[in-house]
Simulated scan of single mutants.
Amino acid sequence: MISDQDAVRSFAALAQDTRLAIYRQLVEAGPSGLSAGALAEALAVPAPTLSFHLAQLRGAGLITQQRSSRSLIYAVDITRMNGVIAFLSDRCCSGRPELCLPTSAIRTKTDARPRRKTV
């Protein structure tokens, strides 16, 4: 579990549209991450601006940086991301954390029933 201060740093880093877009792009890329050049191209962000925002996300512990040959590869820190999510939901609904599952993870009764073909 992350501390209140760590959570505040994470939320502050994500409370800016470019940084949020970078973070979402890295979440989508998964553990393999993306190079700074690929991020700049995908988001149409100038390199100096991208560097500033990547430094903010790294400072908050949300992403990692690794050198691969001549490129810097950035990836989401999955453990930290899960920690932030757990921080938000650990006291959910008076001890009923299942109510805090994302809607994509919840199967409704109609989803569970087999569907009949219509003619």
Rank of each mutant, 00 (worst) to 15 (best):
54 L>T: 03
117 K>Q: 14
107 R>T: 14
65 Q>L: 09
100 C>N: 05
69 S>V: 08
110 T>H: 15
118 T>N: 12
36 A>C: 01
71 S>R: 05
80 R>S: 05
34 L>R: 00
43 L>N: 06
57 L>T: 03
80 R>Q: 01
88 L>G: 09
9 R>I: 10
20 L>M: 14
97 P>I: 05
65 Q>V: 07
90 D>H: 15
109 K>W: 14
20 L>R: 07
78 I>R: 06
28 E>V: 09
81 M>W: 03
110 T>F: 12
41 E>A: 09
9 R>W: 11
85 I>L: 10
25 Q>N: 11
72 L>D: 02
37 G>H: 07
68 S>P: 02
28 E>P: 03
75 A>L: 02
43 L>T: 01
55 A>C: 11
35 S>L: 02
10 S>A: 15
19 R>T: 01
36 A>R: 02
21 A>T: 10
105 A>L: 13
104 S>A: 15
71 S>W: 00
8 V>Q: 14
5 Q>V: 13
59 G>W: 00
71 S>V: 00
70 R>N: 06
12 A>I: 09
110 T>M: 12
21 A>V: 08
108 T>G: 11
85 I>R: 14
6 D>G: 11
56 Q>N: 07
14 L>R: 00
46 P>R: 13
44 A>H: 11
3 S>T: 15
17 D>T: 10
68 S>H: 11
7 A>D: 07
16 Q>C: 09
26 L>F: 05
35 S>V: 03
44 A>L: 12
29 A>V: 00
48 P>K: 02
84 V>Y: 07
59 G>E: 06
107 R>F: 13
91 R>L: 15
11 F>W: 06
10 S>I: 05
98 E>G: 06
15 A>V: 08
106 I>Y: 13
15 A>Y: 14
92 C>Y: 09
70 R>V: 03
97 P>R: 08
8 V>A: 13
83 G>D: 03
83 G>P: 04
81 M>R: 14
44 A>S: 14
6 D>Q: 15
99 L>P: 04
82 N>A: 04
39 L>P: 01
104 S>V: 09
55 A>K: 15
42 A>Y: 04
40 A>E: 03
18 T>V: 11
69 S>H: 10
60 A>M: 05
88 L>N: 03
33 G>K: 02
74 Y>N: 03
75 A>M: 03
74 Y>L: 01
